[in-house]
Write a protein that binds this DNA or RNA. Structure first.
Lengths: 223, 223
DNA sequence: TTTTTTTATTACAATATTGTAACACAAGAA
DNA sequence: TTCTTGTGTTACAATATTGTAATAAAAAAA
């Protein structure tokens, strides 16, 4: 359950937002003392922050900058004035998104969902059928099986997975592996593909990588 | 230079958008024949698509779904009616964002920049001072220097960078490297830290990793 | 201080990684 | 079919990677 911190001084809006978020399956957190916002954020570690930039006695812009610099929690700014200057500022201070008051509930929910969707994208992309891809450790996991890929093999496989069902040229892969260095034997790629295929075979994906003779390779999305 | 495909039948808006994008450093592509939009997209491979959903004789929603499913090109939908129903549809069909006509140029530019910013984020996050971290290839780049980290060294360094300025326990790192396997010598971590430090020293960050005796390590954000 | 505990360094051996070369194979062209 | 071109496989040697052990150093405790 995603926790969303609401930094907003208007109590009516606070309650309204709270209800809206709750109804949509989020866990709203309301900040009582704006003076110690930063400490609170550190303590609570929300997944997203709804920050009204114009709260009296609080420097919202400074807070935004600090969040950006130190914490990497996405921030949706709430601006009260619908001016272009404000919008440009949002961009400057590095908010992830913004809405203007009065806000449309559906727009707000869309923007929130959008941010979470993007966050998960990297991880989501990194699986292939029932194979979990641990890029950092170079491991493919399927059921109770594990296959260890080398750096080169993982570079190739990652690229194929991202572009699955699309043709990937040998040149593309040569660039990824060796930045197309002239002194690298062309066959080196073939060998690496061969090694990757052998490992994919171990987990039951023998024909996953198709050869497109004269062009390159294609990772099948369907088998 | 990012290439942005404009799918829009109103010629005035087409030209307007084109100029706006050009002025902002993007390369606009205008689609002439809406009937073959999909083929065109495959051929042109734009970095982003501005899609007016209500183009006569074209099923924008179907096109959006196809783009989503097969290509992973971000799409900003342009809706002509400012209704909530439309907004919900955008969400359903999986657009990355949307704007409503008449659009505010700055809002549009913000949303475009936002999408590209997020795309780069993974790489962006991974830097430490002036050191660029290529996680996949295991390379640290600084000015014209390059240091090659091994898988273990990169796992440690990544974790320290994410939690820079925060204490990271030895146990945490043992878990990351060997899932805290009982048969792994405790000293193995110390050796790996030592090796990492030696490589950081090569690029001028001799005292970046501080020892917190009895607890763990801390990567300094300030030196 | 001395003792104990924790961390650092170095050398080393086992294993992994990787590009090359030689040869095998397969698909399309002639 | 035969030839040609592009791809696949295997063996091999040069490096790289990695955990362990022995020893040193440093910080904390006694």
């Amino acid at each position: 359950m995603k926790r969303i911190l609401i930094i907003e001084d208007d109590e009516t809006i606070q309650v309204e937002l709270s209800e809206l978020l709750k109804a949509s399956g989020y866990e709203p957190i309301i900040l009582i003392d704006f003076q110690h916002a930063e400490a609170e954020i550190n303590k609570n570690k929300p997944d997203l922050i709804l920050l009204d930039i114009n709260i009296p006695y609080m420097n919202g812009e400074l807070l935004l900058q600090k969040i950006r610099k130190n914490m990497d929690i996405p921030v949706i700014m709430v601006t009260s004035k619908n001016t272009e200057a404000d919008e440009l500022l949002s961009m400057m201070y590095g908010a992830d998104d913004y809405i203007t008051k009065p806000y449309n509930p559906n727009i707000l929910l869309f923007r929130i969902a959008n941010i979470f969707k993007r966050q998960n994208k990297n991880e989501e992309i990194f699986s292939y059928f029932d194979v979990e891809i641990d890029k950092e450790r170079g491991i493919l996991r399927k059921n109770n099986m594990e296959v260890f890929l080398t750096k080169n093999e993982m570079l190739i496989f990652s690229h194929l997975v991202i572009h699955k069902n699309q043709m990937v040229t040998r040149d593309e892969l040569m660039t990824i592996l060796w930045n197309n260095a002239f002194y690298i034997n062309d066959n080196a790629l073939t060998v690496n593909i061969s090694r990757l295929r052998a490992k994919l075979k171990e987990i039951g994906y023998e024909n996953a990588i198709e050869t497109r003779k004269g062009y390159g390779y294609l990772l099948n999305e369907v088998l």
